[in-house]
Every structure is written in structure tokens, then in C-alpha cells.
Simulated assay, not measured.
Amino acid sequence: MAHVEIYTKAFCGYCARAKSLLGKKGVAFEEYDITMGGPKRSEMLERAQGGATVPQIFIDGTHVGGSDDLGRLDREGKLDALLGI
């Protein structure tokens, strides 16, 4: 199964939606809460090439985007293959 990382903030509906989709698929993920900023926020900005909104999602180190992008991949039938399920 793929290694999934997600940068989130508290009270973020888009973050909750992305985490829910991953949970429904039975995928474990590493979550980085950047609500208060800090080094993980800087890391996210660098890895996401300036993507400043949350969530920012990475699958096996590849940036896939945010919640809408994750949902689109699922609707197109491409997400399961990326997740290795």
C-alpha cells in the first residue's frame, strides 16, 4: 500500500472530506497539522510548489493536490491504483 501524507488545518471541511475518502478506502495516512504554522507549513509550501491551501496530499512522495483533486482521481478510477489497493 502507498505511503500517504496529508497536510491539514483544524476545522477544515476540505481536509475532513479528503481524510474521510481515504478512510473509506481503508488507507492509513500520515497527517501533519499546520494550523499554527511552523516548519511543517514551510515544508508543505516547498513540497507543493507554493500550494498554500489545505489539504495538500502526497502519495508515495508525489503531490496529487487537494481534496477536489483526490475526489477527481477517485471518480476517474485512478485513485485505487495510486494507493496500491
Rank of each mutant, 00 (worst) to 15 (best):
V4N: 04
E5S: 01
E5T: 02
Y7F: 11
Y7G: 01
T8D: 04
T8Q: 07
K9H: 09
F11K: 12
F11D: 13
C12S: 08
C12T: 10
Y14T: 03
R17I: 13
K19L: 04
K19W: 02
L22H: 03
K25Y: 05
G26C: 13
G26R: 11
V27Q: 08
A28W: 10
F29H: 09
E30G: 02
E30Q: 11
E31Q: 11
Y32H: 14
I34K: 11
T35Q: 08
T35N: 06
G37K: 15
G38I: 05
G38A: 10
G38F: 04
G38L: 09
P39C: 11
K40L: 07
R41H: 10
R41M: 05
R41V: 01
R41C: 04
R41F: 03
E43F: 11
M44R: 07
M44T: 06
A48I: 03
Q49D: 11
G50N: 12
G50A: 04
G51K: 03
G51L: 05
A52R: 12
A52V: 14
V54N: 06
F58W: 04
F58L: 01
F58Q: 01
I59T: 03
I59D: 00
I59P: 02
I59K: 03
I59R: 02
G61V: 03
G61C: 07
T62N: 13
T62S: 14
V64A: 02
V64W: 06
V64H: 08
V64M: 09
G65P: 00
G65V: 04
S67I: 07
D68N: 12
D68P: 03
D68Q: 12
D69N: 09
D69W: 06
L70M: 09
G71I: 11
G71T: 11
R72D: 10
R72Y: 13
L73K: 07
D74Y: 14
D74C: 08
D74I: 05
R75D: 15
R75C: 12
R75F: 14
E76F: 12
E76H: 12
E76G: 12
G77H: 09
K78I: 03
A81H: 14
A81R: 15
L82P: 02
L82E: 05
L82D: 06
L83K: 05
I85F: 09
